[in-house]
Amino acid sequence: MAAKDTLYLENNIRSAIHNVDSFVGLQLWDIPGHANLDLLGIDLSQLSTLVFVVDAQDDYTRSLTQLHQIILRAYKANKQVNIEIFVHKVDGLSDEYKLDTIRDIKSRVSDGLSDYGLDSLLRPQLSYHLTSIYDHSILDAFSKVVQKLAKQLPVIQNLLNVFCANSGIAKAFLFEQNSRLYFATDATVADASTFEVCVDALDTFDKFSKLYKYHPSIEQDQDQDQSEQNQDQHLNPIKNLKQPATASIRLASDITISKWQIHENLILIALIKSDTFDRFKQSIDYNVSFVRDAIVDIVEMEKRSRSSRSASIATN
């Protein structure tokens, strides 16, 4: 959905549960603002992450009191819970004011919590994010939330670090294609605009690739009918060997943004110096094939363990 269309979204009245099957299996519980936690009947001990959205353009005193209550209850139910606070709608604020707002909210929350007798040592982990739907900050923030839930993150991060160091890559992101969230990136620091351009590049590649599609011609189908038996055995290995989608955009000042399809829904985006890309493209591709193998292994393993887990739950 485009950001400008969100105006037409209606207010949430009931809480809704969305299942998101991404890199980690997620269940999003979309809870309306006015709801009373007692009436919802949610088992707070099941929560692994709690995302609380604060409207930065509004008077947030009341919503912070609500936040205190929720933090206390969630923490009591589950000591391991991650609490993420999105300071939202910051697009209307100036940079200076943004920082002021987040500082104010931080101090109010911690003051409030110590009023309730929560020691600063025993306090749950709170993270704050400045977000807006009109730029990519919401993607960035949500990516970080999801990353905390992924147990395999350190492994993949390490993998990307090694890959970047050995392939002359400035920055690499592992994106999920549909949601545009990234699951891992290497350890180098990048500014927000780099991330934005990478997301935009991914968008461009994605939309472009939809304009042309494969369409088997009729004559070929007839041929296939005759020798279908023979072909079938050959087709499968060929399909696997077929080139995975890659793409690259070159920018004028010596940077190339490059994309590799890693898994059905996972995409590796990397920023490379154009010079390096031209000279070592084959070797980089070779390195990517190893990254791909490793990540596919991890993803398949995760899938298997998840399905066995759900099977055991079903038997219970």
Partner: peptide, 29 residues
């Protein structure tokens, strides 16, 4: 759509103080 896409991407390149130069795409087919 291509006009629109590339134009939009050129826009976002400006964030990096950069300019769009070329693009290549290798899909399955």
């Amino acid at each position: 759509q291509i006009s629109q896409l590339i134009k939009a991407f050129k826009q976002s390149c400006a964030k990096l103080n950069n300019q769009f130069n070329s693009m290549q795409l290798t899909e399955m087919d």
